[in-house]
Design a protein around this nucleic acid. Structure first.
Lengths: 230, 230
DNA sequence: GGGCTTAATGTTGACGTGACTTTAAGGTGA
DNA sequence: TCACCTTAAAGTCACGTCAACATTAAGCCC
Protein backbone atom coordinates (compact mmCIF):
# COMPACT_ATOMS: atom_id res chain seq x y z
CA UNK A 1 0.00 0.00 0.00
CA UNK A 2 1.65 3.19 -1.16
CA UNK A 3 0.48 6.33 0.52
CA UNK A 4 0.52 9.77 -1.00
CA UNK A 5 -0.19 12.69 1.28
CA UNK A 6 -2.32 15.67 0.51
CA UNK A 7 0.97 17.44 -0.01
CA UNK A 8 3.44 15.80 -2.36
CA UNK A 9 5.24 13.63 0.19
CA UNK A 10 4.91 9.86 -0.09
CA UNK A 11 4.23 7.45 2.74
CA UNK A 12 4.13 3.66 2.71
CA UNK A 13 2.02 1.58 5.04
CA UNK A 14 3.66 -1.76 5.68
CA UNK A 15 2.87 -4.81 7.79
CA UNK A 16 5.71 -6.85 9.26
CA UNK A 17 5.88 -9.78 11.65
CA UNK A 18 8.37 -10.96 14.23
CA UNK A 19 8.12 -14.74 14.18
CA UNK A 20 9.39 -16.88 17.04
CA UNK A 21 10.04 -20.60 17.01
CA UNK A 22 11.94 -23.06 19.16
CA UNK A 23 14.76 -25.20 17.81
CA UNK A 24 17.70 -26.93 19.44
CA UNK A 25 20.88 -24.94 19.30
CA UNK A 26 23.34 -26.66 16.89
CA UNK A 27 26.23 -26.44 19.38
CA UNK A 28 24.86 -26.65 22.88
CA UNK A 29 21.83 -28.68 21.90
CA UNK A 30 19.68 -26.53 24.19
CA UNK A 31 16.24 -25.39 23.11
CA UNK A 32 16.60 -21.85 21.83
CA UNK A 33 14.44 -19.09 20.39
CA UNK A 34 14.90 -18.58 16.68
CA UNK A 35 13.35 -16.21 14.21
CA UNK A 36 13.29 -16.03 10.42
CA UNK A 37 14.73 -13.07 8.57
CA UNK A 38 14.47 -12.10 4.93
CA UNK A 39 17.33 -10.74 2.88
CA UNK A 40 16.49 -7.43 1.26
CA UNK A 41 16.77 -7.52 -2.51
CA UNK A 42 16.56 -3.79 -3.15
CA UNK A 43 17.56 -0.46 -1.72
CA UNK A 44 17.56 0.79 0.93
CA UNK A 45 19.59 -1.69 3.01
CA UNK A 46 19.96 -4.03 0.01
CA UNK A 47 21.55 -7.32 1.05
CA UNK A 48 20.86 -6.83 4.75
CA UNK A 49 18.51 -8.92 6.84
CA UNK A 50 15.07 -7.62 7.72
CA UNK A 51 11.77 -8.75 9.19
CA UNK A 52 9.38 -10.49 6.83
CA UNK A 53 6.71 -8.07 5.72
CA UNK A 54 5.29 -6.09 2.88
CA UNK A 55 2.83 -3.42 1.87
CA UNK A 56 -0.67 -3.55 3.34
CA UNK A 57 -3.03 -5.06 0.82
CA UNK A 58 -5.98 -2.81 0.20
CA UNK A 59 -8.62 -5.50 0.69
CA UNK A 60 -7.21 -7.24 3.77
CA UNK A 61 -7.54 -6.64 7.47
CA UNK A 62 -4.28 -5.94 9.25
CA UNK A 63 -3.86 -9.34 10.83
CA UNK A 64 -4.83 -11.10 7.63
CA UNK A 65 -2.31 -9.02 5.73
CA UNK A 66 0.41 -9.97 8.20
CA UNK A 67 -0.49 -13.63 7.86
CA UNK A 68 -0.60 -13.62 4.06
CA UNK A 69 2.59 -11.65 3.68
CA UNK A 70 4.28 -14.06 6.04
CA UNK A 71 3.03 -17.01 4.06
CA UNK A 72 4.19 -15.49 0.80
CA UNK A 73 7.69 -14.54 1.93
CA UNK A 74 8.56 -17.40 4.26
CA UNK A 75 5.94 -20.11 3.73
CA UNK A 76 5.12 -20.08 7.45
CA UNK A 77 1.67 -20.45 9.00
CA UNK A 78 1.75 -19.09 12.55
CA UNK A 79 -0.08 -20.70 15.42
CA UNK A 80 -0.47 -17.41 17.29
CA UNK A 81 -0.59 -13.88 15.98
CA UNK A 82 -0.91 -10.61 17.87
CA UNK A 83 -0.34 -6.99 17.06
CA UNK A 84 2.83 -5.61 18.60
CA UNK A 85 3.12 -1.90 17.84
CA UNK A 86 2.91 0.66 15.07
CA UNK A 87 6.30 2.13 14.26
CA UNK A 88 6.20 5.43 12.44
CA UNK A 89 9.15 7.68 13.18
CA UNK A 90 9.68 10.11 10.34
CA UNK A 91 13.31 9.10 9.90
CA UNK A 92 13.04 5.33 10.26
CA UNK A 93 13.52 4.86 6.54
CA UNK A 94 16.07 6.88 4.56
CA UNK A 95 13.85 7.43 1.51
CA UNK A 96 10.08 7.58 1.66
CA UNK A 97 8.34 7.60 4.96
CA UNK A 98 7.21 4.14 6.10
CA UNK A 99 4.72 3.39 8.84
CA UNK A 100 4.97 -0.26 9.85
CA UNK A 101 2.27 -2.05 11.76
CA UNK A 102 4.18 -4.90 13.33
CA UNK A 103 2.77 -8.21 14.52
CA UNK A 104 4.45 -10.96 16.48
CA UNK A 105 3.78 -14.63 15.96
CA UNK A 106 4.57 -18.06 17.33
CA UNK A 107 4.97 -21.13 15.16
CA UNK A 108 5.11 -24.79 16.11
CA UNK A 109 8.28 -26.81 15.82
CA UNK A 110 6.96 -28.96 12.97
CA UNK A 111 6.16 -25.79 11.03
CA UNK A 112 9.78 -24.76 11.31
CA UNK A 113 10.93 -28.07 9.89
CA UNK A 114 8.48 -27.68 7.01
CA UNK A 115 10.01 -24.45 5.71
CA UNK A 116 13.61 -23.98 6.73
CA UNK A 117 16.01 -21.65 4.97
CA UNK A 118 14.55 -20.92 1.58
CA UNK A 119 16.15 -18.77 -1.07
CA UNK A 120 16.32 -15.51 0.85
CA UNK A 121 15.02 -16.71 4.20
CA UNK A 122 17.22 -17.82 7.07
CA UNK A 123 16.69 -18.58 10.75
CA UNK A 124 18.76 -16.90 13.45
CA UNK A 125 19.08 -17.22 17.20
CA UNK A 126 16.83 -14.50 18.62
CA UNK A 127 19.41 -13.23 21.09
CA UNK A 128 22.25 -13.18 18.58
CA UNK A 129 21.10 -11.53 15.39
CA UNK A 130 23.10 -10.02 12.55
CA UNK A 131 22.77 -6.27 11.90
CA UNK A 132 19.25 -5.57 10.73
CA UNK A 133 17.81 -3.08 8.28
CA UNK A 134 15.85 -0.03 9.41
CA UNK A 135 14.88 -0.06 13.10
CA UNK A 136 14.16 -3.78 13.01
CA UNK A 137 16.65 -4.61 15.77
CA UNK A 138 14.70 -2.33 18.09
CA UNK A 139 11.48 -3.99 16.99
CA UNK A 140 12.81 -7.47 17.72
CA UNK A 141 13.95 -6.34 21.17
CA UNK A 142 10.47 -5.10 21.92
CA UNK A 143 8.84 -8.27 20.63
CA UNK A 144 11.18 -10.38 22.73
CA UNK A 145 10.29 -8.41 25.82
CA UNK A 146 6.58 -8.83 25.08
CA UNK A 147 6.92 -12.57 24.55
CA UNK A 148 8.88 -13.05 27.76
CA UNK A 149 6.47 -10.90 29.73
CA UNK A 150 3.36 -12.47 28.30
CA UNK A 151 4.41 -16.09 28.69
CA UNK A 152 4.65 -15.56 32.43
CA UNK A 153 1.04 -14.50 32.91
CA UNK A 154 -0.75 -15.98 29.91
CA UNK A 155 -0.93 -19.53 28.59
CA UNK A 156 0.60 -18.95 25.16
CA UNK A 157 3.46 -21.43 25.49
CA UNK A 158 1.24 -24.13 24.01
CA UNK A 159 1.45 -22.29 20.68
CA UNK A 160 4.96 -23.71 20.34
CA UNK A 161 3.77 -27.27 20.94
CA UNK A 162 1.66 -29.91 19.21
CA UNK A 163 -1.92 -30.25 20.47
CA UNK A 164 -0.90 -32.93 22.97
CA UNK A 165 2.10 -32.45 25.19
CA UNK A 166 3.57 -33.38 28.56
CA UNK A 167 4.24 -30.99 31.38
CA UNK A 168 7.94 -31.53 30.77
CA UNK A 169 7.46 -30.28 27.22
CA UNK A 170 5.62 -27.22 28.45
CA UNK A 171 8.28 -26.53 31.02
CA UNK A 172 10.99 -26.85 28.38
CA UNK A 173 9.25 -24.13 26.38
CA UNK A 174 9.18 -21.79 29.35
CA UNK A 175 12.81 -22.50 30.16
CA UNK A 176 13.90 -21.87 26.59
CA UNK A 177 11.99 -18.61 26.26
CA UNK A 178 13.01 -17.23 29.63
CA UNK A 179 16.48 -18.77 29.57
CA UNK A 180 16.23 -20.15 33.06
CA UNK A 181 15.69 -23.48 34.75
CA UNK A 182 12.42 -24.03 36.54
CA UNK A 183 11.62 -26.39 39.38
CA UNK A 184 9.55 -29.23 37.87
CA UNK A 185 7.32 -29.66 40.90
CA UNK A 186 6.52 -25.97 41.31
CA UNK A 187 6.03 -25.50 37.58
CA UNK A 188 3.53 -28.34 37.60
CA UNK A 189 1.60 -26.78 40.43
CA UNK A 190 1.16 -23.39 38.86
CA UNK A 191 0.62 -24.79 35.37
CA UNK A 192 -2.28 -26.89 36.60
CA UNK A 193 -3.58 -24.00 38.69
CA UNK A 194 -4.46 -22.10 35.51
CA UNK A 195 -7.24 -24.61 34.76
CA UNK A 196 -6.48 -24.36 31.05
CA UNK A 197 -4.90 -27.82 30.84
CA UNK A 198 -7.00 -30.94 30.54
CA UNK A 199 -5.42 -34.39 30.91
CA UNK A 200 -5.89 -36.62 27.87
CA UNK A 201 -4.15 -39.83 28.91
CA UNK A 202 -0.68 -41.15 29.41
CA UNK A 203 2.29 -41.03 27.10
CA UNK A 204 2.70 -44.43 25.47
CA UNK A 205 6.16 -44.13 23.98
CA UNK A 206 8.61 -46.21 25.90
CA UNK A 207 10.92 -43.92 27.74
CA UNK A 208 13.15 -45.61 30.25
CA UNK A 209 11.27 -44.16 33.20
CA UNK A 210 7.80 -43.49 34.50
CA UNK A 211 5.57 -42.38 31.59
CA UNK A 212 4.24 -38.82 31.91
CA UNK A 213 0.64 -37.74 31.46
CA UNK A 214 -0.46 -35.95 28.31
CA UNK A 215 -2.36 -32.68 28.35
CA UNK A 216 -4.31 -30.62 25.91
CA UNK A 217 -4.82 -26.87 26.02
CA UNK A 218 -8.36 -25.86 26.83
CA UNK A 219 -9.23 -22.58 25.10
CA UNK A 220 -9.90 -19.99 27.80
CA UNK A 221 -11.07 -16.54 26.72
CA UNK A 222 -7.58 -14.96 27.06
CA UNK A 223 -8.65 -11.34 26.34
CA UNK A 224 -8.87 -11.22 22.55
CA UNK A 225 -7.41 -8.40 20.53
CA UNK A 226 -9.94 -5.60 20.08
CA UNK A 227 -10.46 -6.14 16.35
CA UNK A 228 -10.62 -9.93 16.49
CA UNK A 229 -13.78 -10.10 18.57
CA UNK A 230 -16.93 -11.59 17.16
CA UNK B 1 -2.49 11.80 5.32
CA UNK B 2 -4.45 10.41 2.40
CA UNK B 3 -3.26 7.11 1.09
CA UNK B 4 -3.67 5.92 -2.47
CA UNK B 5 -2.78 2.33 -3.16
CA UNK B 6 -0.86 1.03 -6.13
CA UNK B 7 -4.25 0.01 -7.42
CA UNK B 8 -6.89 2.71 -7.48
CA UNK B 9 -8.28 2.16 -3.97
CA UNK B 10 -7.84 4.93 -1.44
CA UNK B 11 -6.73 4.53 2.17
CA UNK B 12 -6.44 7.13 4.90
CA UNK B 13 -3.97 6.93 7.74
CA UNK B 14 -5.39 8.65 10.80
CA UNK B 15 -4.24 9.21 14.37
CA UNK B 16 -6.82 9.39 17.15
CA UNK B 17 -6.62 9.61 20.91
CA UNK B 18 -8.77 8.40 23.77
CA UNK B 19 -8.37 11.02 26.48
CA UNK B 20 -9.23 10.31 30.10
CA UNK B 21 -9.74 12.81 32.87
CA UNK B 22 -11.29 12.81 36.33
CA UNK B 23 -14.14 15.08 37.28
CA UNK B 24 -16.81 14.89 39.98
CA UNK B 25 -20.08 13.48 38.72
CA UNK B 26 -22.68 16.30 38.64
CA UNK B 27 -25.33 14.20 40.42
CA UNK B 28 -23.58 11.81 42.79
CA UNK B 29 -20.57 14.06 43.32
CA UNK B 30 -18.30 11.04 43.03
CA UNK B 31 -15.04 11.26 41.14
CA UNK B 32 -15.68 9.79 37.71
CA UNK B 33 -13.80 9.09 34.50
CA UNK B 34 -14.67 11.45 31.69
CA UNK B 35 -13.50 11.74 28.11
CA UNK B 36 -13.85 14.40 25.44
CA UNK B 37 -15.60 13.67 22.17
CA UNK B 38 -15.77 15.69 18.99
CA UNK B 39 -18.89 16.16 16.92
CA UNK B 40 -18.37 15.13 13.31
CA UNK B 41 -19.04 17.96 10.89
CA UNK B 42 -19.09 15.92 7.68
CA UNK B 43 -20.06 12.55 6.31
CA UNK B 44 -19.81 9.76 7.19
CA UNK B 45 -21.52 9.83 10.58
CA UNK B 46 -22.10 13.58 10.34
CA UNK B 47 -23.43 14.97 13.61
CA UNK B 48 -22.35 11.95 15.69
CA UNK B 49 -19.71 11.94 18.36
CA UNK B 50 -16.25 10.59 17.64
CA UNK B 51 -12.78 10.45 19.12
CA UNK B 52 -10.57 13.46 18.57
CA UNK B 53 -8.14 12.77 15.75
CA UNK B 54 -7.11 13.57 12.25
CA UNK B 55 -4.87 12.61 9.36
CA UNK B 56 -1.25 11.80 10.09
CA UNK B 57 0.91 14.77 9.26
CA UNK B 58 3.69 13.84 6.89
CA UNK B 59 6.48 15.42 8.92
CA UNK B 60 5.46 14.29 12.41
CA UNK B 61 6.16 11.18 14.42
CA UNK B 62 3.06 9.23 15.44
CA UNK B 63 2.95 10.38 19.06
CA UNK B 64 3.66 13.97 18.08
CA UNK B 65 0.88 13.82 15.55
CA UNK B 66 -1.53 12.53 18.18
CA UNK B 67 -0.52 15.31 20.54
CA UNK B 68 -0.81 18.09 17.97
CA UNK B 69 -4.09 16.88 16.58
CA UNK B 70 -5.44 16.70 20.11
CA UNK B 71 -4.29 20.23 20.85
CA UNK B 72 -5.83 21.53 17.65
CA UNK B 73 -9.22 19.87 18.05
CA UNK B 74 -9.74 20.08 21.82
CA UNK B 75 -7.08 22.42 23.20
CA UNK B 76 -5.88 19.72 25.57
CA UNK B 77 -2.27 19.02 26.54
CA UNK B 78 -2.05 15.49 27.93
CA UNK B 79 0.15 14.57 30.86
CA UNK B 80 0.61 11.00 29.66
CA UNK B 81 0.44 9.53 26.17
CA UNK B 82 0.82 5.96 25.01
CA UNK B 83 0.02 4.06 21.87
CA UNK B 84 -3.05 1.84 22.21
CA UNK B 85 -3.58 -0.13 19.02
CA UNK B 86 -3.76 0.16 15.26
CA UNK B 87 -7.29 -0.39 13.98
CA UNK B 88 -7.54 -1.29 10.33
CA UNK B 89 -10.49 -3.47 9.49
CA UNK B 90 -11.42 -3.07 5.86
CA UNK B 91 -15.04 -2.24 6.69
CA UNK B 92 -14.55 0.08 9.65
CA UNK B 93 -15.40 3.09 7.56
CA UNK B 94 -18.24 3.05 5.02
CA UNK B 95 -16.37 5.02 2.33
CA UNK B 96 -12.63 4.98 1.93
CA UNK B 97 -10.54 2.64 3.97
CA UNK B 98 -9.15 4.19 7.14
CA UNK B 99 -6.35 2.80 9.26
CA UNK B 100 -6.32 4.52 12.64
CA UNK B 101 -3.35 4.46 14.95
CA UNK B 102 -4.96 5.16 18.30
CA UNK B 103 -3.30 6.60 21.38
CA UNK B 104 -4.64 6.96 24.88
CA UNK B 105 -3.88 9.86 27.15
CA UNK B 106 -4.38 11.14 30.67
CA UNK B 107 -4.88 14.79 31.51
CA UNK B 108 -4.80 16.59 34.84
CA UNK B 109 -7.88 17.99 36.46
CA UNK B 110 -6.80 21.61 35.99
CA UNK B 111 -6.32 20.92 32.27
CA UNK B 112 -9.92 19.81 32.08
CA UNK B 113 -11.09 23.06 33.66
CA UNK B 114 -8.99 25.04 31.19
CA UNK B 115 -10.77 23.70 28.11
CA UNK B 116 -14.27 22.48 28.83
CA UNK B 117 -16.92 22.06 26.21
CA UNK B 118 -15.82 24.09 23.24
CA UNK B 119 -17.82 24.53 20.06
CA UNK B 120 -17.90 20.91 18.94
CA UNK B 121 -16.20 19.32 21.94
CA UNK B 122 -18.02 17.86 24.89
CA UNK B 123 -17.08 15.72 27.89
CA UNK B 124 -18.92 12.49 28.69
CA UNK B 125 -18.83 9.95 31.46
CA UNK B 126 -16.57 7.18 30.18
CA UNK B 127 -18.92 4.37 31.17
CA UNK B 128 -22.01 6.03 29.75
CA UNK B 129 -21.28 7.32 26.27
CA UNK B 130 -23.63 8.28 23.47
CA UNK B 131 -23.54 6.25 20.25
CA UNK B 132 -20.18 6.79 18.59
CA UNK B 133 -19.12 6.98 14.96
CA UNK B 134 -17.18 4.17 13.27
CA UNK B 135 -15.82 1.53 15.70
CA UNK B 136 -14.98 4.15 18.28
CA UNK B 137 -17.11 2.57 21.00
CA UNK B 138 -15.03 -0.59 20.70
CA UNK B 139 -11.86 1.51 20.82
CA UNK B 140 -12.97 3.25 24.01
CA UNK B 141 -13.76 -0.09 25.61
CA UNK B 142 -10.30 -1.33 24.85
CA UNK B 143 -8.67 1.87 26.13
CA UNK B 144 -10.67 1.63 29.34
CA UNK B 145 -9.53 -1.94 29.86
CA UNK B 146 -5.91 -0.92 29.29
CA UNK B 147 -6.15 2.00 31.70
CA UNK B 148 -7.72 -0.15 34.42
CA UNK B 149 -5.20 -2.92 33.91
CA UNK B 150 -2.20 -0.63 33.79
CA UNK B 151 -3.07 1.48 36.82
CA UNK B 152 -2.91 -1.64 38.97
CA UNK B 153 0.70 -2.51 38.14
CA UNK B 154 2.21 0.80 37.02
CA UNK B 155 2.37 4.19 38.74
CA UNK B 156 0.46 6.23 36.16
CA UNK B 157 -2.24 7.51 38.49
CA UNK B 158 -0.11 10.54 39.27
CA UNK B 159 -0.74 11.73 35.70
CA UNK B 160 -4.20 12.75 36.88
CA UNK B 161 -2.84 14.78 39.78
CA UNK B 162 -0.84 17.96 40.35
CA UNK B 163 2.87 17.47 41.11
CA UNK B 164 2.21 17.38 44.84
CA UNK B 165 -0.54 15.25 46.29
CA UNK B 166 -1.57 13.29 49.36
CA UNK B 167 -2.00 9.55 49.53
CA UNK B 168 -5.73 10.15 49.90
CA UNK B 169 -5.70 11.96 46.55
CA UNK B 170 -3.83 9.11 44.93
CA UNK B 171 -6.22 6.61 46.40
CA UNK B 172 -9.20 8.59 45.18
CA UNK B 173 -7.80 8.34 41.66
CA UNK B 174 -7.50 4.57 41.89
CA UNK B 175 -10.96 4.27 43.34
CA UNK B 176 -12.47 6.42 40.61
CA UNK B 177 -10.73 4.57 37.80
CA UNK B 178 -11.44 1.10 39.14
CA UNK B 179 -14.84 1.99 40.58
CA UNK B 180 -14.15 0.33 43.90
CA UNK B 181 -13.29 1.35 47.42
CA UNK B 182 -9.81 0.58 48.67
CA UNK B 183 -8.58 0.08 52.21
CA UNK B 184 -6.60 3.23 53.08
CA UNK B 185 -4.04 1.37 55.18
CA UNK B 186 -3.31 -1.32 52.62
CA UNK B 187 -3.26 1.17 49.79
CA UNK B 188 -0.70 3.23 51.64
CA UNK B 189 1.54 0.23 52.14
CA UNK B 190 1.66 -0.88 48.55
CA UNK B 191 1.84 2.66 47.23
CA UNK B 192 4.92 3.34 49.32
CA UNK B 193 6.37 -0.06 48.43
CA UNK B 194 6.80 1.06 44.83
CA UNK B 195 9.55 3.47 45.90
CA UNK B 196 8.36 6.01 43.33
CA UNK B 197 6.88 8.39 45.91
CA UNK B 198 9.03 10.83 47.81
CA UNK B 199 7.64 12.78 50.77
CA UNK B 200 7.83 16.54 50.36
CA UNK B 201 6.31 17.84 53.57
CA UNK B 202 2.96 18.15 55.24
CA UNK B 203 -0.24 19.57 53.90
CA UNK B 204 -0.75 23.04 55.34
CA UNK B 205 -4.34 23.71 54.39
CA UNK B 206 -6.54 23.59 57.43
CA UNK B 207 -8.72 20.54 57.19
CA UNK B 208 -10.61 19.69 60.30
CA UNK B 209 -8.46 16.65 61.05
CA UNK B 210 -4.88 15.44 61.13
CA UNK B 211 -2.96 16.99 58.20
CA UNK B 212 -1.71 14.44 55.66
CA UNK B 213 1.78 14.23 54.22
CA UNK B 214 2.48 15.44 50.69
CA UNK B 215 4.25 13.34 48.11
CA UNK B 216 5.84 13.88 44.77
CA UNK B 217 6.23 11.31 42.04
CA UNK B 218 9.81 10.24 41.43
CA UNK B 219 10.32 9.33 37.76
CA UNK B 220 11.10 5.64 37.60
CA UNK B 221 12.02 4.12 34.21
CA UNK B 222 8.55 2.55 33.69
CA UNK B 223 9.39 0.66 30.45
CA UNK B 224 9.22 3.32 27.76
CA UNK B 225 7.43 2.73 24.48
CA UNK B 226 9.80 1.30 21.88
CA UNK B 227 9.96 4.42 19.74
CA UNK B 228 10.34 6.87 22.60
CA UNK B 229 13.70 5.57 23.75
CA UNK B 230 16.80 7.69 23.51
C1' DG C 1 -10.79 19.21 77.41
C1' DG C 2 -14.22 16.00 75.04
C1' DG C 3 -15.48 14.54 70.69
C1' DC C 4 -14.97 14.41 65.82
C1' DT C 5 -12.29 13.16 61.53
C1' DT C 6 -8.64 11.42 59.04
C1' DA C 7 -3.48 9.99 59.07
C1' DA C 8 -0.37 6.55 60.06
C1' DT C 9 1.19 2.32 62.17
C1' DG C 10 0.43 -2.57 63.95
C1' DT C 11 -1.44 -7.18 64.08
C1' DT C 12 -3.33 -11.36 62.42
C1' DG C 13 -4.66 -15.08 59.33
C1' DA C 14 -5.08 -16.86 54.62
C1' DC C 15 -2.77 -17.71 50.53
C1' DG C 16 0.88 -18.23 46.97
C1' DT C 17 5.46 -19.53 46.10
C1' DG C 18 10.36 -21.33 46.26
C1' DA C 19 13.21 -24.99 47.99
C1' DC C 20 13.22 -29.42 49.17
C1' DT C 21 11.62 -34.34 50.30
C1' DT C 22 9.09 -38.44 49.50
C1' DT C 23 6.58 -41.80 46.93
C1' DA C 24 5.14 -43.79 42.31
C1' DA C 25 5.95 -46.00 37.96
C1' DG C 26 8.18 -47.34 34.45
C1' DG C 27 12.69 -49.48 32.01
C1' DT C 28 17.49 -51.66 32.28
C1' DG C 29 20.87 -54.85 33.31
C1' DA C 30 23.57 -58.06 36.46
C1' DT D 1 14.01 -61.74 39.67
C1' DC D 2 15.57 -57.96 41.85
C1' DA D 3 18.49 -54.00 42.92
C1' DC D 4 19.06 -49.69 40.46
C1' DC D 5 18.40 -45.91 37.40
C1' DT D 6 15.39 -42.07 35.68
C1' DT D 7 11.60 -39.12 35.62
C1' DA D 8 6.60 -38.30 37.23
C1' DA D 9 3.81 -36.79 40.71
C1' DA D 10 2.54 -35.58 45.28
C1' DG D 11 3.75 -33.75 49.76
C1' DT D 12 6.14 -30.69 53.30
C1' DC D 13 7.79 -26.44 55.21
C1' DA D 14 9.44 -21.77 55.72
C1' DC D 15 8.91 -17.32 54.05
C1' DG D 16 6.78 -13.19 52.00
C1' DT D 17 2.66 -10.84 50.36
C1' DC D 18 -1.69 -9.11 51.14
C1' DA D 19 -6.57 -8.35 52.73
C1' DA D 20 -9.03 -7.38 56.86
C1' DC D 21 -9.14 -5.41 61.04
C1' DA D 22 -7.38 -2.93 65.31
C1' DT D 23 -4.77 0.75 67.45
C1' DT D 24 -2.47 5.00 68.09
C1' DA D 25 -1.41 9.87 66.39
C1' DA D 26 -2.59 14.53 65.22
C1' DG D 27 -5.07 18.00 64.02
C1' DC D 28 -9.89 21.03 64.31
C1' DC D 29 -14.42 22.43 66.41
C1' DC D 30 -17.45 23.39 70.12
Amino acid sequence: MTVSSSIDQRVSLAVSTVVFALRPHPESGLMTLWLPLVRRIREPYEGMWALPGGPLEADEDLAASAQHTLERTTGLAPNYLEQLYAFGRVDRSPDDRVVSIVYWALVRQDEVARAVDGENVEWFVADDLPPLAFDHAQIVDYALARLRAKITYTPIAHAFLPPEFTLADLRAVHEAVLRTTLDPANFRRQALATKTLVPTGTCLTGTSHRPPALYRFEAGAASPAPEERR
